[in-house]
């Protein structure tokens, strides 16, 4: 529901909002795309931010292979399972033994159930927000950063993650008056690259 409302408050119409939940179907990327567009960023900056956030789904798919593959997995099944490869379906599948029927069952039921609920919620939220004259009155603009911090929160598992988050937020805020809208957020990807290099160096020396 919150995605639908936030997307419409960011300036997308109900159809565009619903198309994202059907076609993109990965929460963080969807929120990022509408967030960057809503802040006045260009389409390119919005798409690149969404793709960088969606890259982790590739690794989920990779780690799911031994859990889902059988000797006769058809190509249309692979095409279908790709769309419902998200945090939740991955987490449910890997609780069962690799290659087991339960793992496949958990993946498909979780993925499809969330797909249906997420799209229903999107529609309700989008129609609700579209009925309002000024989303600011209901504080929907404040709901946007709240949605992002709720997505971020479970990833702040250790001190280096918290340090990276604070550094990225500081860099992006500092660049707001200097760069075009959309680019300050993307610049945080460079902060992540620097953090990765620092971690690689620490690993080598330890």
């Amino acid at each position: 529901m919150s995605f639908g409302a936030i997307s419409v408050a960011s300036g997308l119409d109900v159809w565009q909002t619903q198309a994202l939940s059907l076609g993109m179907f990965t929460g963080a990327s969807q929120f990022a795309l509408v967030g960057v567009l809503g802040a006045g960023g260009g389409a390119l900056a919005a798409v690149v931010t969404a793709l960088l956030l969606g890259a982790r789904n590739s690794l989920y798919a990779l780690s799911l292979r031994p859990y889902l593959d059988t000797a006769h997995t058809s190509w249309w099944r692979v095409l279908g399972r790709a769309q419902i490869t998200i945090d939740e379906s991955t987490a449910m599948a890997i609780r069962y033994p690799a290659g087991s029927r339960q793992a496949r069952h958990a993946f498909w039921t979780t993925g499809l159930a969330i797909f249906v609920l997420w799209n229903l919620g999107t529609l309700i939220g989008a129609l609700g927000a579209a009925a309002l004259d000024d989303p600011r009155v209901l504080g929907l603009d404040a709901a946007v950063p709240a949605g992002f911090i709720a997505l971020l929160w479970p990833r702040l598992r250790d001190r280096s993650a918290i340090a990276l988050a604070l550094a990225s937020a500081a860099v992006a805020i500092a660049l707001v008056p200097i760069l075009q809208p959309g680019l300050p957020v993307l610049s945080a990807a460079l902060v992540a690259v620097i953090a990765e290099r620092l971690m690689a160096r620490t690993e080598r020396t330890s």
């Binding site: 990022a32 802040a39 990225s168 990807a189």
Partner: peptide, 18 residues
């Protein structure tokens, strides 16, 4: 490593900017 760090950096930047 980078794929794990990108969501943290981008989501935090989005929190700050938004």
């Amino acid at each position: 490593r980078l794929t794990a760090l990108l969501p943290i950096a981008l989501l935090a930047a989005l929190v700050g900017v938004q």
